[in-house]
Design a protein around this nucleic acid. Structure first.
Lengths: 253, 253
DNA sequence: AAACACAGTGTCGTTTAGACACAATTCTAA
DNA sequence: TTAGAATTGTGTCTAAACGACACTGTGTTT
């Protein structure tokens, strides 16, 4: 929790630098040991959690703002980001940091403002991330998607919407380049899909389908050293992958 | 074009009533005589066109703002609205009503602000609409989708994005209830799809597929009086239609 | 009455999707 | 050392979906 002095400085600074009434919240998905992960922050001295977020500089494109915010939390640049929804309920930010509401007069208190928030979801390679807390948090950490605690504000809704959107996008976009290591086996990729969708898929049908998209390259050499039969290694064919991102998979009409 | 006095009043009022830096722009699609239509406004005394839009009241949910804006332009309430993208380029609003930029000092001039705009697309029944211009326009009128003029600001991009989104949604959502009359024939509905997609579809395959969705009810009586063989009349089965809106059609996985 | 325009329905062959079986490789346990 | 379990690679069968296409029916036009 910020002191009164820190808060005053933060707010003065915010009014100076950022667009009013607009925030950005990011749902950062990672994939590790067969589990879907989300990046969360824990509020100082409370045990309340929220999504990484921030504000838009007065002359900054919003995509760049989202990138900047995530760079601060993850250390990563050039993250795969997808804007998915604006949350604009006037009550949504009422609870916003209301721990600070009595420390400054409303006029000077940035956090008593109403904020619309633009939701972005991000797909990142779990291993590349160095989680770093922000000014209001003690902890920044990965959390298993299936055991996410109650989040502050409407962040639980934002998370759910992000996940729904991601699942939808799975139907007409290639996914995985940003979540997997450079090389991976077919079962590993399948596990990713199963985790996102939260259901089992048939091995053989999965392989047939995913190969049909033409976005994978198979390495000459299978992965050695593991137990059991050595699986082939695959990587994404970036050219086709990017094309598919733009084109989309088979439409309905 | 507003007079200096009108402008001053408008701006004072705007700072009072609306959230800063946020606007809403709407792409209103209608369907008439086999053509896709978009609602456009023409700036007073220029022949420049733009999309219906407006601002968000300080305590108003954004969906309600979009509804309010559209009610003013169309006379319609309870319009089918779909938020589809936020346009946040810092340069996008630079040109914004720059005809007014010299009439007021920047501090007092609402229109010199940077605005992010939330894009909504709307589907409406062409015949129900009473187009009404706003304060800045002389004309509010339907325009054929395939002969839309150059639009102000980034409104051409907004329109294109709306159309792309609509086409995508066609793949997993029922569409038509908000665009067609209560009762319609199969060829009429097909024409709607063909117009949105801008391509021909096979009569028989279209019918098979659309009926397969289970969102249509066939009337007992065919439409009489027309030339040629009397076609059956259909209407949407609202219960199934709404269910399909939520459920979505067959996913890919 | 013939020609035409448009509507309704059915069929055929190909492609795709889902269910499933079997062979190959490597570790583990008897 | 060998049988079994686990895991991976690959193929096949069937049913459903999709795309191309042909025929029939009804009313208008000439």
């Amino acid at each position: 929790m910020l002191t009164k002095k820190e808060l005053r400085e933060y707010c003065a600074d915010a009014y100076e630098k950022y667009l009013g009434h607009i925030s950005i919240d990011c749902v950062v998905f990672g994939f590790h040991e067969g589990l879907m992960k989300v990046l969360l922050l824990e509020i100082k001295s409370e045990s309340e959690w929220y999504l990484p977020g921030g504000f838009v500089l007065k002359k900054e494109p919003i995509e760049m703002a989202a990138n900047r915010i995530l760079k601060e939390r993850t250390g990563l640049d050039q993250i795969f980001l997808q804007q998915f929804h604006v949350f604009g309920d006037p009550e949504r930010s009422k609870e916003h940091f209301d721990m600070y509401k009595d420390m400054l007069p409303d006029k000077e208190n940035w956090f008593t403002n109403r904020f619309l928030t633009i939701g972005y979801y991000a797909l990142v390679d779990f291993n590349d991330v160095n989680p770093a807390p922000d000014q209001f948090s003690t902890t920044c950490t990965w959390c298993d998607l299936n055991s996410v605690p109650q989040l502050k504000l409407d962040h639980s809704l934002i998370l759910k919407t992000a996940l729904d959107t991601l699942r939808l996008h799975l139907n007409y976009q290639p996914i995985g380049y940003n979540l997997m290591q450079k090389e991976f086996t077919m079962p590993e990729l399948q596990k990713l899909y199963e985790t996102i969708l939260d259901k089992k898929l048939d091995r053989r049908n999965f392989q047939r389908r995913i190969l049909g998209f033409g976005i994978l390259k198979r390495s000459e050499q299978p992965r050695k050293g593991g137990a059991h039969k050595a699986p082939y290694l695959y990587s994404f064919d970036l050219e086709n992958y990017r094309a598919a991102l733009i084109e989309g998979f088979k439409g309905g009409w």
